[in-house]
Design a protein around this nucleic acid. Structure first.
Lengths: 339, 339
DNA sequence: CTGAAAGCGCTTACAG
DNA sequence: CTGAAAGCGCTTACAG
């Protein structure tokens, strides 16, 4: 007796079919299907429509709905590097959960940081009448805003552009740096090294500022000779090990988890044990790494999920958009066994 | 003189506006905008329309177009774990590149492997009239197909369901295992250990089969005592180190890169050097890990990008769908310095 | 070569 | 309480 045995047929039954089968008008069907508040529909008609809907397996055409309502339920998310770290995935995840919560769906596009792909992606989203666009980067940085982004509501996620007028949401690098340092301080360390990145960035300056402010708060004089520069990956951390050892620091705050991973190797080669001989804390809480080093790495998490979620909240006007400055999301401490 | 100074206005000008401004009918505008083959439009009218389009900054409404054409340009991609490894990101990346190439855009949904979220995601996609759905998992496994997937064209990516009738595309685990083993063989090793996962899966059986067949091809008798079981992560690899050393193997093929990473630590603790004392090869080519171990890890790559791309090709009927068996994508060798 | 008109599947005043 | 009708922005035969 089932009507839908054709295999594929999203195309199948329309509201008109339901109306006819239920013996009512499409207006009535529309009202009950959407549960319109103002609609006074008789219990009888309502029931008949509902039965018919499930009987026929009716599925509303969201596109037609959008067209007649004039307001879409798409949110576009353009990302520059969806495939190299889980970071973009976490932003997408957070954005999607929040979007769904409000009845929106995500249209995503990867651009590989390529301007042409970016323009194409934005154009495509505009043509699909997106409610707005989330423009995201896989690491916190300043960007120049693609012109087309101004043609709809947009928010920058994990990046910012001073003077662009676009709302932005970024991680609180300084608080993160402070948190990491304070954790080392709390364990009794006074001579704390900091392996910073060689790459100029908000992370570079912010985490350093946090490190300094934590020391200051603890009444420890900042010692420039305890700050080292290293490429922000395993190789950099490994290469920094001898310098760390020379510095006689008892603890080290690494610019990120990959640096910490390399440092682990370097320290171990010199016979040092973590945390007994020297404590280490990272940054990022990078998935397949941090929890699986030996010992598991204490670190500060980059709140990518939350960045994505906050981005859609800003876009939908659910959170008050901070007028000029980017919204800063806290980087929480993740305690493991390296301290 | 520009007409679009309102900040946001995706909503702005319609085809009708263009028609009026250009002094032609909307039919004519439609024809030139879409460059319809059959359309005989005067050079003059065509030029006027084109000028008006750029002048007004007209952007076609893709939703309206879909509605009247009756055929959508969406492809849905449901993923079970977008946020934990870069794997899903790579599938998305490949799927998107291929989809765009054919004029389609990607609607993505993360489900966290949760059935309710899955059903909701599929329903949402169906309501958006997707051309079809790619159902993907972050590691190769057998799944039970959500009922709703049969309501449209679907293809399974990185997973399969025997007897479901759905086309599927998966990595060629056996070839991968053979390739890894052959690489060790080629370096002169005869006594090769294999650390397999404890988790029953296509990877477990496939990579083992590949290992065996490579040995066989090389005229080496399979030695059960050289196959070890370990949890498929760093901890498992680390714990396996003593057993590996006892086995007197000169080379080891690890079930994945994370296992190799743990094994590195375990071996190093016993004073063994890689590759001088013992050669190691991994599997997965996992992003932030493989290239950054010391020494950089030779491995076999999981072709996630290609899985995503092949998935949309299958969906669009561009590749001949293999009738019953999943389509197998090769796992390429990645040579680095651990052999 | 070009336009008037119907139709895609829905929503929304407006009547009754 | 319910339906007829116009409209959302486009496409596509069909006339001329």
């Amino acid at each position: 007796m089932s009507t839908a045995e054709h295999g594929k047929s999203t195309s199948g039954i329309t509201m008109r079919d339901v109306a006819k089968a239920a013996g009512v008008s499409v207006a009535t069907v529309s009202h009950v299907v959407n549960n319109k508040p103002g609609a006074r529909i008789g219990d009888d008609a309502r029931r008949r429509v509902q039965e018919t809907v499930t009987e026929l397996g009716y599925r509303p055409n969201a596109l037609a709905k959008t067209l007649s309502e004039g307001t879409s339920r798409f949110i576009g998310l353009v990302a520059d590097a969806i495939a190299t770290t889980p970071f973009a995935g976490q932003i997408i995840h957070g954005a999607q959960d929040e979007a769904w919560k409000h009845g929106y769906v995500l249209l995503v596009a990867n651009t590989d940081g390529n301007t042409a792909a970016e323009d194409e992606a934005i154009a495509m989203m505009l043509e699909h009448q997106v409610r707005g666009i989330l423009y995201s980067t896989w690491y916190h940085r300043e960007i120049v805003v693609p012109e087309a982004l101004h043609q709809t509501d947009s928010v920058l996620v994990d990046c910012f552009a001073d003077g662009s007028g676009l709302p932005a949401v970024v991680p609180d690098e300084e608080q993160g740096g402070r948190t990491a340092t304070e954790e080392l301080l709390a364990a009794g360390h006074r001579r704390i090294a900091f392996i910073n990145t060689t790459t100029p960035s908000p992370a570079q300056s912010g985490r350093l500022a946090g490190y300094r402010s934590a020391l200051e708060l603890a009444g420890i004089t900042f010692d420039e000779s305890l700050v080292f520069a290293a490429a922000p990956e395993q190789e950099g951390g490994y290469a920094a090990a001898p310098r760390i050892i020379d510095s006689t620091a008892t603890a080290v705050f690494c610019h990120n988890d990959r640096v910490a991973m390399g440092l682990y190797d370097g320290l171990r080669e010199q016979g040092l044990r973590i945390p007994d001989d020297i404590a280490v804390i990272g940054f990022d809480n990078q998935d397949v790494i941090a929890a699986h080093l030996r010992p598991p790495l204490s670190t500060v998490a980059l709140p990518h999920y939350e960045l994505g979620a906050a981005g859609v909240r800003l876009l939908l006007g659910l959170d008050p958009a901070t007028a000029t400055d980017p919204l800063k999301v806290a980087c929480p401490l993740i305690q493991r066994q390296s301290i």
